[in-house]
Amino acid sequence: MSASIKVMERKGSSFLEKIFLLEIFKGMWVTLGHFWSNLCDNSRLYVRHYPEVKPEITPRWRGRHRLTTHDDGSVKCVACFMCQTNCPAKCIMIEAGERMDGKSEKVPVRFDIDLLECIYCGYCVEACPMDAIRMDTGIFSVTSYDRESVYMRIDTLLATEGAFDEKEYKKGGA
């Protein structure tokens, strides 16, 4: 199979192009067209009015984390430390305790994520053997006036709901 070669036509060497002026006027005509149509009707602007109109988030988007639960509301996490070990930013801090309800041996008594350290790589989600941590909340804007409120603890992580239904989330490849 021979490689297909496309010879590009070199522009800019003809006399008319070398004196610039004609090409400049052509370019200015194009930009003026944009200006004029936007001036006459500013609904034509390619703009999302952001704080009021939110962007659409797909299920594959890695947003803020949450911890999932079993159907009876108990924590899925078994405190295996896989996510903490995998985390390249070292933003997850787990403290394990004994589990009493018989589902497993361990349960996290402390599960902190420092979102200021987090780089949203999603390795924790991939590492988790229990599907206990997910990034499907659809929260993309993590901002605050103090550090404390972006330091996620286990209760906040458990309280956050996923933004997508199970089918949509699985379609994303999880």
């Binding site: 944009h34 200006f35 936007n38 034509r44 602007l45 390619y46 703009v47």
Partner: peptide, 10 residues
């Protein structure tokens, strides 16, 4: 504003 309108921004 002119720059924005030339570039289809607000």
């Amino acid at each position: 504003r002119g720059a924005a309108f030339f570039q289809d921004r607000a």
